[in-house]
Amino acid sequence: MPDAAALTIEDLVAGYGQVTVLQEVTLAARPGTITAVLGANGAGKTTLLRTISGLVKPRAGRILVDGIDLARRRPEDITRAGVAHVPEGQGVVTELTIEENLRLGGLIRSGGAARSAALADAYQRFPLLAERKRRLAGTLSGGERQILVIARALMAAPRVLLLDEPSLGLAPRMVTQVMDLVRRLRDDAGLTVLLVEQNARSALAIADHGLVLNLGKVVAAADAATLSADVALRRHYLGF
């Protein structure tokens, strides 16, 4: 049912310089679902997110968010259209305080009241951040930074959340916490999430759907349960 999708990608082709990474990638994510994007290193998972958020210009194809084509727009305008991209590798601004990082995420909200409300929400949801709001973000641990970047993305009240390897480099206990958080964002806030993960097992555990990329092509797309049950696919592409 492509009509009801919050995020639809049609025949997306993108790459860097002479290299084409994404080859006619197509997907449809319904509102309030988590779609896990899986595959080996170099499969094009990160490039897919970077293309959706405008950091990489697509060569062909469409990127529809609530029916509006955002392909080839600038990253800042795509963010303003309701797509939040949390890139891999700790995108906190270490020189700013935790509160300033959060406020930065809410700047595209219009009006001081909306921004203050978003900040209060963030502190209520993440008491850990409230306790340390005046500290520099650089003082946080890896797991805490991951919480902060997700909280910061939420400040913009996005409808679509692109998460790139949120569990990368985290201790197992933090991985569980982050995955729980992602699931709650879907269940409580109705967010549509595109979750890129190396850790296919924990991603499929919370996802509704899965998409497996190999060398820039979609090799499988199905319910998370179906993908998890496909032993050959798991062995071949997912490594578990």
Partner: peptide, 24 residues
């Protein structure tokens, strides 16, 4: 001020600022 926050974020981490909707 929020203008100052934009200025500082752009100075420290322009790529991050852009992704958060700051018009660099």
């Amino acid at each position: 001020t929020s203008v100052g926050l934009r200025l500082r974020a752009t100075a420290f981490a322009p790529a991050v600022a852009r992704l958060l909707g700051v018009r660099i």
